[in-house]
Design a binder for these strands. Structure first.
Lengths: 246, 246
DNA sequence: CGGCATGTTGACCATATTCAATTGAAGTGG
DNA sequence: CCACTTCAATTGAATATGGTCAACATGCCG
């Protein structure tokens, strides 16, 4: 029920993430805070950046879920990233004038747009923050290669299970309760499956006693079961201790 | 026949790439050159870094092909990246102590190992190079999302065609002739298909008059046909003008 | 109450996998 | 130079997995 708008307090989401890895100076904290000013509200399905559109901005996601999608020539859609609060949207398009993908809000969301230029300025002023942004991007890539593996080599059952565990882990790292504000059509477009097959696969996971649907909310009944079934590898999302302290 | 060892000259591969986007000072060139010292020879199938192994090094690939792979619990393999000369191997593992994936030489290769630390030093000394490395990583991610799209939403025929075009484009950007030193089993593991199906799909592409096999060498007969069939989008690999000049 | 979006189900079909046999090409050693 | 081995590629047959289409159910919101 609550991936919705909140964070009226202007507490930074970046600072705690980064301090987890390194110690920041006041100056560095100020630089980060500048990226989290002027939160704007985006209602469900609002577009932040359209595919192909000129864009010189990134977005710091303060609350809610967002995603990046790509539409193929024949109208099919592929979801490329699912963003949770604290992530920056568009890092991979730093060097591009036009967006390769559409970014949009999957739930009501708060996000702070800021010019790409500002990141470059940070690189000029703080090598440590540079490292940290580099790491953020590396972590994003790690998620992406997991997705490639997931889609490339697992069947529907394992794939869906894996995805659910991934989301569960990412939410847990943020101290957020599990939820899945994604319809089955988009889930299909995320996992390379049809929406119909997502429905069947959910049913299968329920039959196996791993999941449960209660009044519209999805519940994980057996996380370990899901992990085992999907062959999930924790390493790729864990922060410390695997991530080097700087 | 010639993705093999050469480059006895110690000409930098990074400098021209980067100068394509920005102008470098002498100091910056020196920093880059330091990454391309001490080329080591890796024979076909040699491992540069094993999966799960401790690693504090990256590799600058001078010649030959390399790749990153991941082995699943059930023994299946997924190829995650294919690296061509001029690329840096391991960028996404900058912050990790242990490698998520295996890196190995697909052909005879020359590569220069250097400590991750050196990249951090570059960040400290040159914001411009920082930008450029950030962009290199962004470009890598762009390739990755194309792969996700490819595997997630295209059928075998389109997928293989798309892959071939991608390789063709990347080789052309390097002024290298087209070749494909990859066996069908690995191709399958790259594209999320079985090796048997790769064989059948090749046959189909030949029947369509798009490809040809001459004494063991693959030839592209109709690049435009492949592009159209696969829905290939040039934007994601082009360097200028899409990539911002810094 | 009605309308629209989302999810579920069944029947049928398409696509790709698996398994096994065969062919082919590239070394290797006699 | 010719078996002989080995590994990759090819082919066919049977099977599995997931897609498509269409009907129907459900839930939400106005």
């Amino acid at each position: 029920m609550d991936s919705t708008v909140k964070a009226p307090d202007n507490r930074s989401l970046l600072i705690p993430q980064f301090e987890n890895i390194s110690t920041l100076s006041d100056r560095e904290m100020t630089l980060l805070q500048a990226l989290e000013q002027d939160a704007r509200h985006y209602p469900v399905n609002a577009t932040l950046t359209a595919e192909g559109e000129f864009s010189d901005r990134l977005f710091m996601l303060k609350s809610g879920w967002a995603c990046a999608t790509r539409i193929l020539a024949d109208g099919q859609r592929q979801v490329l990233d699912i963003f949770l609060p604290g992530q920056i949207l568009g890092l991979r398009e730093m060097g591009m004038r036009h967006s390769l993908t559409e970014f949009y809000a999957m739930t009501d969301a708060l996000a702070c747009p800021f010019p790409k230029q500002r990141l470059t300025e940070i690189f000029e002023q703080s090598p440590k923050l540079t490292d940290l942004f580099f790491l953020a991007m590396a972590r994003e890539q790690s998620m992406l290669i997991e997705r490639v593996t997931n889609i490339g080599r697992r069947n529907a059952l394992e794939r869906l299970a894996h995805f659910i565990v991934e989301i569960k882990v990412r939410l847990t790292l943020r101290n957020m309760p599990f939820e899945l504000p994604i319809n089955q059509s988009m889930l299909g477009d995320t996992l390379g499956l049809s929406s119909v097959h997502i429905s069947r696969t959910f049913k299968q996971l329920k039959t196996l006693g791993l999941l449960d649907h209660q009044n519209g909310n999805l519940h994980i009944l057996d996380l370990e079961g899901l992990i085992e079934l999907s062959g999930f590898d924790r390493a790729y999302l864990d922060t410390s201790p695997e991530w080097t302290r700087l």
